[in-house]
């Protein structure tokens, strides 16, 4: 099973419109709903917001990884959003977040979710890769950069 297959062109947005943390989460949930990856919008939104309340998922280097677990999905689903101006996501280093990776996974499976995040964040740990994602002109470019 290739975990990176969870991220496809239809769940990537290079043009995040929102300007607050809550809005970004909603916007990304809607991307997953439109792509047919989430059926129960309300429950998915709830779990991500609840998770965010416990501890912000804004990491270093402008990466944020909002996520949640719910049995309303059968397998891991993922979306990637880019907003080059950045949004305050209560990140560890206090800097604005620019790349958002959202995952929603079934409640009792932590393995795939962590492995997915590990693979993606390992790739994005490289400054050149981050820059390529941030300046990508098309979704195909992101797919190529992350070797999806």
């Amino acid at each position: 099973m290739n975990l990176k297959k969870a991220l496809t062109k239809d769940t990537i947005s290079l043009d995040i419109k929102s300007s607050s943390k809550e809005e970004v989460i909603e916007e990304m949930i809607d991307i997953l709903v439109s792509a047919g990856k989430i059926k129960d919008r309300k429950s998915a939104l709830n779990v991500v917001i609840e998770r965010e309340k416990k501890m912000s998922t804004g990491m270093q280097n402008g990466i944020a990884i909002p996520h949640g677990k719910t049995d309303t999905v059968e397998t891991l689903v993922a979306a990637l959003g880019v907003k080059s101006e950045g949004i305050d996501f209560d990140s560890i280093d206090g800097k604005p977040s620019t790349i958002f990776i959202m995952t929603i996974s079934p409640a009792n499976r932590t393995g795939p979710h962590i492995q997915f995040l590990a693979e993606i964040s390992r790739l994005l740990n490289d400054p050149a890769t981050r820059q390529k994602v941030l300046t990508a002109q098309s979704k195909e470019e992101v797919v190529d950069t992350l070797q999806l």
Binding site: A118, R122, N125
Partner: peptide, 19 residues
């Protein structure tokens, strides 16, 4: 152990998800 890389953690090591 991060992917195939193995090291001994030092004070300035930044850990990542999945490590």
């Amino acid at each position: 152990m991060r992917g195939d890389e193995i090291s001994i953690p030092r004070g300035d090591t930044q850990f990542m998800i999945g490590d």
